[in-house]
Design a protein around this nucleic acid. Structure first.
Lengths: 272, 272
DNA sequence: AGATATTTGTTCGTATGTATT
DNA sequence: TAATACATACGAACAAATATC
């Protein structure tokens, strides 16, 4: 059942004896596309599904749970309730993806390697579509961090807002996969443990420079100059990367000097 | 249960009455991290979980199903069987993500907008790590399409192999998120309906040029010239994009001329 | 190869919870 | 408030898969 999603190569690899629940998952998926069901439409209720697949409640329920986790349906109780087609939220997609990347050890360098080339693209593709409301939102976000933070908490909030700034820009991109990737990278930065350490460090001079870049960006977008917008973001990203890597290096130095043993093994434990 | 994954804003929105099965999902997740369980380690068996959560079999099975769909565990029957920690496969991660992007209407232009900047990056980051075995694999792939295809099927296989070429290069990148994104874009191209139409069209001169680029790339990587590798791929991608957009335009022309009505809504679905 | 023990997979009947009217 | 329509949860019994001897 590893790759039962989407349409795969019909290699017909001698039927690995699928489980009933997984068959039902696929059957319901087919039902959805065949009947052209869209968000908000309702599937047959449990009773009917039981009859249709001649399966028991528990089994059908397992199948529905699987679809729910994939973000394809949501289930409501009560009269008129049942399973309804959903469109997967971006947040859920990101959570699912995070589970995959959790094992791989991502670094700030990895993330910025992509942001350096993607954020300029995002800015350029958002430029034709930004409007007054968008500009207003961007300026509201800037106002969160246009002043010295009072304490560590505010400092942290300011760093999060800086990332949100780029998230809002991405909302105006007409490229869905680019916008998603950009925002996902922002979320990874928020989650990365090392980044979290960095975000509570006082920053040297980056803030003024960052804000200047962002105001320049807004101006460029308002005069529909996509090329300029991209150039500004390229510079901004290069600067941010430098800054993050520098702080990271400092943190690691401090960590090493505080540590006695050079390598402290993180012994995975087994329950067997 | 929309966003119970990872740490979300603790807005404390008055306990939306979580479902038992979802509570168990979270409890097991916590159990995994607290005990530091890694791939291959086994969870307690159903019987024990029933006791531990004092829940019924159906309920814990629902929870296990949810974890299974998320790629976190897999369940085996028989003696010594049970639920085992898995590391999510790339294929599964891509399937999950596809479900999210399915609703958005992606175009070839969207995908190549990203590939143009990402593939050069991939090539550069793979350059220090490619080895003789990798070069051999790449050359084997090239040999699939270094000649005129005999029929439509072979033509299609050749186009798939061209995409696989870049997938293999990505395997040697040291940037996990970059490699994943690159390979995901390749998969999207394989799946995109329009792209599938294009791939059965005879190509004009692109093949020789593409193969030349790829041989140049191999040479650049072997002499560890990351910058040259990136430059070659930038050119290659620009050419491929041109080619795809041109063929797409031709297909659309043909489609329009065959159609009586100027705008024939491409209704994804009929039955509703 | 076959028997057996172990563990998940499925079913059925029933009871409880929840939202609509 | 009560009736209704639906999902949610429980428990016991049985079926199927698989490792071990």
């Amino acid at each position: 059942m590893s790759e039962q999603d989407s349409i795969e190569h019909p290699v017909s690899e001698q039927a690995p004896r699928r489980k009933r629940a997984d068959e039902i998952v696929d059957a319901i998926k087919r039902m959805i596309v065949e009947h052209g069901l869209g968000p908000g439409d309702r599937l047959p209720q449990e009773r009917e599904l039981l009859a249709q697949f001649s399966a028991s409640k528990g089994t059908v329920r397992e199948a529905l749970k699987a679809l729910e986790v994939q973000g394809l349906i949501s289930v409501r109780t009560g009269p008129g309730g049942g399973a309804f087609i959903e469109r997967m939220s971006e947040g859920r997609a990101m959570s699912l993806l995070s589970n995959f990347l959790f094992a791989k050890k991502l670094t700030i360098a990895h993330i910025y390697e992509m942001r350096k080339v993607l954020e300029p693209l995002v800015a350029a593709s958002a430029t034709p579509h930004i409007d007054a409301a968008g500009v207003k939102r961007l300026e509201a976000i800037i106002s969160i961090y246009d002043h010295e933070p009072a304490d560590a908490t505010e400092r942290w909030n300011q760093r999060m807002a800086e990332l949100d700034f780029h998230g809002v820009v991405a909302e105006y991109s007409d490229n869905p996969i680019l916008a998603f990737t950009s925002r996902f990278l922002q979320r990874l930065l928020k989650d990365l443990a090392i980044a979290q350490d960095i975000y509570v460090q006082p920053e040297p001079v980056l803030r003024e420079s960052g804000i200047r870049h962002q105001r320049d960006l807004i101006a460029a977008m308002m005069r529909r100059d996509a090329q300029a917008a991209a150039a500004i973001l390229a510079e901004h990203m290069a600067e941010a990367e430098q800054h993050m890597l520098l702080l990271q290096a400092r943190l690691e130095d401090r960590f090493l000097s505080e540590t006695i043993e050079p390598r402290k093994r993180r012994s995975r434990r087994s329950a067997s």
